[in-house]
């Protein structure tokens, strides 16, 4: 007998449901690591105005603002697919889960574009 247990069957066809699950997990993992980072960074904001401005200068630079739009996207995906999961779990969403996914992700995408526009307006192009 040939034993088979594996982390994931990468040759299995991915339907909308499994894509949603995979991306939801990856987004969730990214967010928990971001949350750890976030709590540490905010803590460093409490060491007086000078330290605050130092940290903010870095956070308002171009690279971090671009990362922030990415973060906003990951959050929106996780949040809106999360809404889909709650609808599936409690409100018979299973019967229309593919349509739900498409509609909710479309809404999330619009919010992402809007939010990213606002975030990028905050870029401090020159330090100081």
């Amino acid at each position: 007998m040939y034993k088979r247990t594996r982390f994931y069957d990468f040759t299995y066809y991915n339907f909308i449901g499994s894509w949603a699950w995979i991306l939801h997990r990856l987004a969730g993992l990214a967010l928990i690591f971001y949350l750890c980072l976030h709590i540490w960074v905010i803590n460093s904001l409490t060491h007086g105005e000078a330290a605050f401005n130092n940290v903010m200068a870095f956070l308002n630079g171009v690279p971090f603002k671009l990362l922030e739009t990415g973060l906003w996207g990951v959050i929106l995906f996780h949040a809106f697919n999360g809404v889909r999961i709650v609808i599936i779990d409690f409100f018979k969403g299973s019967l229309v889960h593919k349509k739900l996914f498409i509609v909710l992700i479309a809404v999330a995408f619009i919010l992402w574009a809007l939010g990213s526009y606002l975030i990028l307006q905050h870029v401090q192009w020159r330090a100081g």
């Binding site: 339907f15 909308i16 449901g17 499994s18 949603a20 699950w21 599936i88 779990d89 299973s94 889960h97």
Partner: peptide, 9 residues
């Protein structure tokens, strides 16, 4: 069960 829907497919 994480509502992946592979079973339904």
């Amino acid at each position: 069960c994480h509502t992946i829907f592979n079973c339904v497919e």
